[in-house]
Computed example of a mutant assay.
Amino acid sequence: MFVRIVKMGFDETHIDTFLADFKENKERIRTFKGCRFLELYRDKNQSNIFFTYSYWESESDLENYRQSDLFKGIWKKTKALFNMKPEAWSVDKLESLK
């Protein structure tokens, strides 16, 4: 399993726009070929900081998503709302306890 974590910071005036866009697109992202899991988190102490956390079957599935028209459209709208440079990590899941 391939995991992608993305940290994004928004100007306070753009948070509602971001959340509406995420709500509109989350099912299309989640059902994109290779995506197995998608969550959105909000920092408890800095309410303008958000994280997406997604599982992908492979790195190539994530790359196919990143090259898709779906991603390009979402990212174009989202990056215009940032107040800081986004950060992203691609990690391998080693263990999971339930």
Rank of each mutant, 00 (worst) to 15 (best):
E24Y: 03
L70G: 00
W56V: 01
L19M: 08
I29E: 01
Q67A: 12
S96Q: 15
R4V: 10
P86F: 06
F37L: 10
L62E: 00
V3M: 05
F32S: 03
E12F: 13
Y53G: 04
L62D: 00
V91D: 03
K23M: 07
W75T: 02
E63R: 04
R42T: 05
T13V: 13
D92H: 08
D16R: 13
W75G: 00
K77G: 03
K23D: 14
M8A: 02
L62T: 00
V6M: 13
R42Y: 06
A80N: 14
D43A: 12
G34I: 08
I29M: 13
G34M: 09
E27Y: 04
V6W: 03
T17I: 14
T31M: 10
F32G: 02
K72G: 05
D61V: 01
D61G: 01
A80Q: 08
T78F: 04
A88S: 11
V3N: 03
S54Y: 00
F71L: 02
D61W: 00
F71V: 01
V6L: 12
L62W: 01
K44D: 09
L40M: 14
K79V: 10
K72S: 09
E27R: 08
I29W: 00
K85E: 14
T52I: 12
D69V: 09
L81V: 05
T13M: 08
G34Q: 09
R36D: 14
K98P: 10
R66F: 09
E95H: 14
W89E: 09
K85M: 07
E95W: 09
L94T: 05
F50R: 02
T78K: 01
N83I: 07
A88T: 13
S96H: 13
D21K: 06
F51C: 03
K7Y: 09
D43K: 09
T13C: 10
K72Q: 09
K79D: 11
I15M: 09
D21H: 05
S54R: 00
L81Y: 08
D11I: 02
E63F: 08
N25I: 04
E57M: 04
S47E: 15
V6T: 12
Y65V: 01
T52K: 06
R28K: 15
S54C: 05
I49S: 07
M8F: 00
W56M: 04
K23T: 12
Q46I: 15
N83M: 07
M84S: 15
F82C: 03
L62S: 00
T13A: 13
E39K: 15
S47N: 14
L81P: 02
R36L: 15
D21P: 00
F71A: 02
T17Q: 11
Y65G: 06
S47K: 15
N45L: 11
L19C: 04
L40H: 07
